[in-house]
Design a protein around this nucleic acid. Structure first.
Lengths: 220, 220, 220, 220
DNA sequence: AATGAATGAGGATTCATTCAT
DNA sequence: TATGAATGAATCCTCATTCAT
């Protein structure tokens, strides 16, 4: 077609920079997966469905993820990162003067993320997931446990002989509390969560540093 | 075999009564499934494999079970029944004079069954199971919680305002402790279990009936 | 239990004579099959479903029928017998003074049976049946054709050189008319049937015996 | 083939363009299905057999067809298209000066295709097919009826009050004639077909446009 | 005659993943 | 990098039918 020489027709496609597109697609795929999981459950999730729902060719999914497991894992990781951020933010916002406050603030931070991320509840809390997510969950909990333990010791809330395993146990038990609380509905059973907070607190107070009377504190 | 000559030889086939055979086959299938689960994991379990391993035609499996899920469920149920029996037996064998003893005896009973039933660990504890098993686990835990609660109140160990939800929470948390303890190996992390016992005990002692000093008791 | 000697306790079961029971069961099975076919279509029909719906053990079905096909065949036969009876009755009730009357009476008799027997429509008319029923349908139509041909010739309505194949063709074409008419609903398209009657009549009048003016006759 | 030395040899694999391959495979599958149907009947047809016979992986069959039914439907459609073409061609080749010629030419065109396509006879004519094919047959006949009706009216052979339903009835009845004629053998009963032609002609002449004496025409 | 139980023999379909381009 | 097309490998489950009693 002899077009006017002066009008160089710009190719209509590709106005989006490479890397940007890639990032966006990963997000799209993750979002799609999240939606599908919430709607139809983990077991019904197929790579094709994810791809179609994300408007991405199936084969391209494998450009960004090595595996179906990998998609789930990435999804869980994204949410867990949000979890960490929320915990950090909330802890920074209050005066953590006791183990009780530490536990309460942390666990409530978790709950707020679960509320924001129903897919996370489905994938992670409701448990019927794949091995990769499960393992990552364990590791993540271990990391959280370590962070909180360091925080507590540094803040003089816990004795420095607080075993790492105790911290892990506390976090994992907290997890189960959430599991139970979100079993029935995506809203979560608030009372159960509070009871769980009490349990974890009671447990950790065995390792509380001696100091200002912590036990008389009021729950807000 | 020098049988008495006068004894008319019973026809060679079918010496096993009908119903007996049926029962045996169900057991065989369950045993086969258990073996396969331990060896290759829950996800790799197929109906065909179960049937072949049990020496039963695939189609016959469907005579006894409605579904693959149903097989898993039956397996879990069988083991949970054993669990209940073990708990009952062990509680009967000791003087349950405190919440601590109650918790300790019960949780150790659980552990002994997990040791005996590795498939149960795989199917039930390691969690990534099907919905049916999951649900049944919840119900079972609720039943256990109720039984133990009644026991504790009747024995004067717990105040009768011990909420059912607290009992359930305690049992479920115990479950998670086992989950963690058996995560890595089928032997179970003994120390973790003991720590878990401590946690659950500490939690339940909030509802302990006033009486002889329970807290000073030694762990045997 | 030492019952009074004079009161011979009649065994509670089996008050129904053998053969009677057998006959009843065959009817039950046929009725059940008919129901299932109407409700779920021919393809979804299974022996087990028939048996269950009839309250008869599956294995017993094979006491009365050699085959699943055989059940369908029996069902079709039962209805076709009713068809024959209806045709005979209706023809006996009117003055068959012309080919037109013969065709009209016969085809309307068919329609009335189709109305009474929706399963027959499903199995036979809607065509997607098994071979046995199909064959029986052909034979039955051949028999009907022969009967009607004999009737027509004897009654002086048709010349005796009316070919058998023409009679068969007429009946089969009638069949297709019904097929079309009952395609959409179990009520049947009345107008289509009338048009079909016209067609068959027109065709057969080619072989009509000379005599009283047939063509001017009014349709009631 | 002595190619110019300078011509770099094209890589050995994939000389067939994408889309071309796809088209070919669909044809292969259809041909295979046709063969199998003729050899073993419609009921014995399995997707695996089709795929194997076509030298195509089973999974690939599902790339081109949604379903087993879909394969059958495609097969029927392919043949019906050929049917239409044949009718059009044959009608174009003769001087259609009467309804009789129209009917005769059309029906004979059908017969010639049935002769060429035995699988079509098996699938379509012998009737015990799936719903999809059945429905498509009805629609196809309706389309043919409409086309022929328009043709007849435009050519001045039929009055323009020829009801559509009459045209449909005529085509459907023709169908049944073919069904009967091809019931026994794939050759088709020629006499029966001719008789059917006579019947359909007689029926349609009721709607013939007044004009040159049509009825006296000779059958070639 | 009656039947609960048993089973051989598939069969349709799915899906994660990989190429060739 | 991107992708339409291709596929190997399974899997669950069904069903007509037959025995043993």
């Amino acid at each position: 077609m002899p077009a006017a020489a002066a009008t160089p027709t710009t190719p209509p496609k590709r106005r989006v920079p490479r890397q940007e597109r890639s990032r966006r697609r990963v997000e799209d795929l993750l979002d799609a997966a999240a939606r599908l999981v919430v709607d139809h459950g983990v077991e019904a999730l197929t790579t094709r469905d994810i791809a179609v729902a994300a408007g991405v060719p199936v084969a391209s999914l494998y450009q960004y993820f090595s595996d179906k497991e990998d998609v789930m894992l990435a999804l869980a990781q994204r949410d867990m990162a949000e979890m960490d951020a929320q915990v950090a933010e909330d802890l920074a916002a209050v005066d953590v003067h006791s183990v009780a406050v530490l536990v309460r603030t942390t666990m409530r931070a978790f709950v707020s993320v679960y509320h924001r991320r129903p897919a996370f509840v489905e994938i992670y809390l409701r448990g019927r997931t794949n091995l990769a997510v499960h393992r990552f969950g364990r590791e993540h909990n271990a990391r959280i446990a370590e962070t909180l333990r360091a925080f507590a010791i540094e803040a003089g809330l816990a004795r420095d002989d607080l075993p790492r395993s105790a911290a892990v146990l506390a976090v994992e038990v907290g997890d189960r509390v959430f599991q139970l609380a979100f079993e029935e509905s995506l809203d979560g059973d608030q009372e159960l969560v509070e009871e769980g907070i009490a349990m974890v607190t009671a447990y950790l107070e065995r390792y509380a540093a001696p100091g200002p009377d912590l036990t008389t504190e009021e729950t807000p």
